[in-house]
Design a protein around this nucleic acid. Structure first.
Lengths: 326, 326
DNA sequence: CTGTTAGCGCATTCAG
DNA sequence: CTGAATGCGCTAACAG
């Protein structure tokens, strides 16, 4: 069932059918009704592909992250998808993992499918092998990166103020009398570096004692690292992390060793994910405003697509939420 | 840059270009090389839209769930996307929420985009207003529903053995000497009903005392319900739930009231999500095998698309994982 | 207000 | 092994 069939049955031309379908151009009321009747009779559904062929757009955006199972990515993807939907766009979901070849392959697929834009979530896309392809793609469609930065033309960046968030956290803990800080982080990314930078700056500013540990992602690595540290006799009264899950691993070790949180040691997570509500005591954490990040990305995109000049980089945030662990 | 440009520059016809692009038909080696050279020179990318126009497929599948922020949906979506990718399909992500109109609107969008199939995650799609549209759509493409059932032709169902999982849980707890059971659930869905059924059957089989409570989703509702129950003097030594997060809410209440888990009360969650690792004590839970569910859906789909006759319904699972809470 | 016509970029016959 | 011709379903001039 196509536009010709409808036209024939309604005794009009395909142009008229197209007009009533898209609500543009003027059609006499009687004619419109006649066409609509046929449309309904056959449950006619226009082909977005054929339309895309003409308009050169499928009204589709590629949203790519490492792994949607990560709560932060899930939250951001969700808010992007919802905002996009309102604008009439659908979203192609891409979980690239860490492999560069996979990332390239997803980029290629999105290019073939002629998406109207690509939104990258997470600075994992700082892989240098991706630079040229990204630059190339950005010549034909805008690329938006959340928590990352490229600096090419037609490339836009939405960044959370990670450094500031860490500074706020340290400031708060200092105000509560904490003196010796531990920072646990698990990712050498754009965001990861910002966080680290914020921690370092802040700790220097207050002239604090501190230790920094890089550990693989996951609750158990954090748990083990913490136990080892304590067994070695390290002393600290505040532990900050780059992820909620890391904080929870540390917390569980502390609890097991009967070290009271927050009385003896303060613990702060990062992301304000639902995980931070599941541990006991509940986690104080940085609210990474995932919803706002996603919405902002889409609103930036929307302005780009409607031809506005848009600032290449927008910053968001830095908010901490205090619960029981600090 | 299209196939004509390439053809002209390589001094061949578009048919030949098409042949080397798709690797079918035979092309003389020299000719192929000449074409490939031009292809590379211009970083030519074929248009999936134009291809879709001819083949009537964009090699795209719609994956729809209520809300990808829910860990279970995220996990299933992830494994679907990954499995699909290997087969050369991309996935359009749809978060419908609970509103029927939204669901219809997503269904319409997917139909317009001519997806090759739709995979529904979760039985929320039992909304009767969806029946006719689903039935209609299934006339042109296969529909796969995870944890639900339609029974229309060209409609397939992948179901987790929720009833059995609950039975296993109760059996286990009985074997540990538990006598009075509480079941907390939050969703009146296909899966939800299966779980409830399993609980009821099992509790009758063992001739146990039990209570069942329906509460809104979320950790705090579970927490409050539990506190209320205890304040009212209800007694139970085993609490089962339909979601990990519910179990954790209950657990937090128990802990706060200095009721020891699992010594005095056993608690079991559902899903084996990462949440179950974040609480203390860590949660014993039902492993809902999200990865297997997703993979199975795709493998079923793959067989359907290649023309095989496929069973309309496949069942998976029932596995519990024991940790500290029970 | 309505119809005619010309592509959009590709896969796919059918000839040669 | 290669090329010419056709059509997929629709939008967008353009003409009437």
């Amino acid at each position: 069932m196509n536009i010709y069939d409808i036209a024939r049955e309604a005794n009009v031309s395909i142009a008229t059918v197209s007009r009533v379908l898209n609500g543009n151009g003027s059609v006499r009321d009687i004619t419109r009704q006649r066409v609509e009747q046929v449309l309904n009779k056959y449950h006619y559904v226009p082909s977005a592909i054929a339309r895309g062929m003409v308009t050169n757009s499928m009204k589709t955006i590629g949203v790519v992250s490492i792994d949607i199972r990560n709560l932060y990515y899930a939250n951001v993807s969700y808010s992007i998808e919802q905002a996009l939907r309102v604008l009439g766009f659908s979203t192609i979901l891409c979980n690239t993992g860490y492999d560069t070849e996979q990332k390239l392959s997803y980029l290629k697929m999105l290019t073939e499918k002629k998406v109207d834009s690509i939104i990258l979530i997470g600075s994992i896309f700082k892989d240098p092998k991706l630079n040229k392809p990204i630059k190339e793609i950005s010549k034909s469609i805008p690329i938006i990166i959340i928590n990352g930065y490229y600096g090419y033309p037609n490339t836009y960046s939405i960044q959370y103020e990670d450094a500031e968030a860490l500074e706020k956290s340290v400031d708060y803990l200092v105000s509560r009398g904490r003196k010796k800080f531990l920072y646990l982080y698990d990712a050498d990314t754009f965001s990861g570096n910002q966080k680290l930078l914020g921690f370092k700056n802040s700790v220097k500013k207050h002239d604090l004692k501190f230790d920094i540990r890089f550990i693989p992602p996951g609750i158990d690595h954090a748990y083990r690292e913490m136990c080892e540290l304590i067994n070695q006799g390290s002393f600290f009264d505040a532990v900050l992390t780059s992820e909620d899950i890391t904080a929870i691993g540390a917390l569980q070790c502390l609890l097991e060793k009967n070290i009271r949180v927050p009385e003896e040691v303060s613990v702060m997570g990062y992301n304000n994910s639902i995980l931070s509500l599941c541990c006991t005591p509940r986690l104080s954490t940085v609210d990474s405003l995932s919803e706002e990040m996603g919405k902002t990305a889409v609103s930036v995109l929307c302005r780009i697509l409607s031809g506005e000049k848009v600032e290449a980089s927008v910053k968001i945030g830095a908010k901490i939420v205090l619960r029981q662990s600090a």
